Amino acid sequence: MNDRTEDAQLLPLQRMHLDLIDSYDEELEMAIDDGDDAQDAEARALRRLYFRELFRLQGELVKLQDWVVAQRQKVVILFEGRDAAGKGGVIKRITQRLNPRVCRVAALPAPNDRERTQWYFQRYVSHLPAAGEIVLFDRSWYNRAGVERVMGFCTDDEVEEFFRTVPEFEKMLARSGITLIKYWFSITDDEQHARFLNRIHDPLKQWKLSPMDLESRRRWEDYTRAKEAMLDRTHIPEAPWWVVQAVDKKRARLNCIAHLLSQFDYHEVPHDPIALPARVRHADYIRHPVPEEMIVPELY
């Protein structure tokens, strides 16, 4: 085997290794990095910088969450982009430290037979926030302008009606007091190709691939034309589109979260000091032992 063949085989393996590390929980990533001699000093320094910034921004997200609750704000954030663009990764980092009763994710499946007969926006409306809530849509009503249009799941007339209706729908949301922020995650053709290969060869990620994802790869140019039309016809002052450059996943996460925070004039909400009460003890209290057969085996 010549050197060029070895390099061609080694690079995909290195990429898979780095992507696997990146998929771990953040604290575990830090522990791995501290003991990974295979990475050079510059790479370790960049990863430490990433974690420091991520944790700082997540601290600000907690402040934003408290402000949203205190001010009874209603916030909707849409995440759109090609398959494997990194939407799920940034959503995970946004919600990781937040209260799920305040900040929740709406990731709707394909509509069922009944929903297909409803007003197109109807199934999304039930997921909109009440006062003091943040809702993150992992894909949204823009499915009609993207996957449904490209895959032929709707007619040209339905697409045109969507483009006529969606600006008015989003203006209605704004008038109702909802802050709507829309992100498009942008990756290159080569980057999507590499990420799809990683999912194919990583058993922990194969569940992310569907026949629809594979077909979307073949129809890259159709998706590009659909995206361009969507951004052109639905970029309105009340709900503008923001494009996140997402080839570098870590930079994309930090940039998106920093930009999201910049969209609010929030401040830290003061909290009363928390005092842990003393545990009440009773002389007649007896703790009964748990039956041995109910104990989970301690394998670790």
Rank of each mutant, 00 (worst) to 15 (best):
C154G: 07
E148T: 06
F137H: 06
M172W: 08
Y183K: 14
K92S: 09
A107R: 12
F162Q: 09
K87P: 06
D157R: 15
D157H: 11
A107P: 11
D113S: 08
Y120A: 03
T117Y: 09
S126T: 14
P100Q: 10
I77Y: 00
I134Y: 01
F55Q: 13
F51C: 03
R97M: 13
A145P: 00
K92L: 11
L78G: 01
F121C: 04
F79H: 02
F162K: 11
K87E: 05
E60H: 15
E60R: 15
I178L: 11
K63S: 11
I181P: 00
T155E: 11
Q73R: 15
V150R: 10
I77M: 06
F137M: 03
R56H: 15
E133P: 02
A70I: 02
P167G: 15
S176Y: 07
A106V: 00
V68I: 13
A145V: 01
E168Q: 15
F185R: 13
L64K: 04
V102K: 07
E158H: 10
V159I: 11
R164T: 11
P167V: 15
R97K: 15
E80R: 11
T95R: 08
V150I: 04
R82D: 02
A85E: 01
C103P: 08
F137C: 02
P109L: 07
G86K: 10
R116N: 12
Q71A: 14
S176R: 15
D66K: 14
V105N: 06
V90I: 07
M151I: 02
V69F: 05
R116M: 14
D156I: 05
A131V: 03
G59Y: 07
Y50N: 09
L64C: 08
A70R: 12
T155I: 05
K171Q: 13
L57Q: 13
F121I: 09
K92M: 06
E170K: 10
V102E: 02
E158C: 03
R114S: 08
M172T: 09
C103Q: 04
R144C: 03
K182D: 02
R97V: 14
L128W: 06
Q122H: 13
E53V: 06
F169K: 11
R56M: 10
R82I: 02
G89M: 06
G81Q: 09
Y124D: 05
L61T: 04
E158P: 05
W184S: 06
W141M: 03
I94W: 02
R175C: 04
T165V: 07
G89W: 04
T95V: 10
K74I: 00
Q122C: 05
R72P: 00
A145Y: 02
H127N: 09
V166W: 04
P167Y: 15
E170G: 01
L173Q: 14
E53C: 11
L64N: 02
L108N: 11
K74C: 00
S126L: 09
V147C: 01
R149V: 00
A174V: 09
F121G: 03
G152H: 12
A84R: 05
F51T: 09
E168G: 12
A85Y: 01
V76H: 01
D157P: 00
D138Y: 06
K182E: 03
L180D: 05
E133M: 04
R116F: 07
R97W: 12
E148M: 04
M172Q: 10
K63N: 13
Y142D: 01
R72K: 15
M172L: 13
L180R: 14
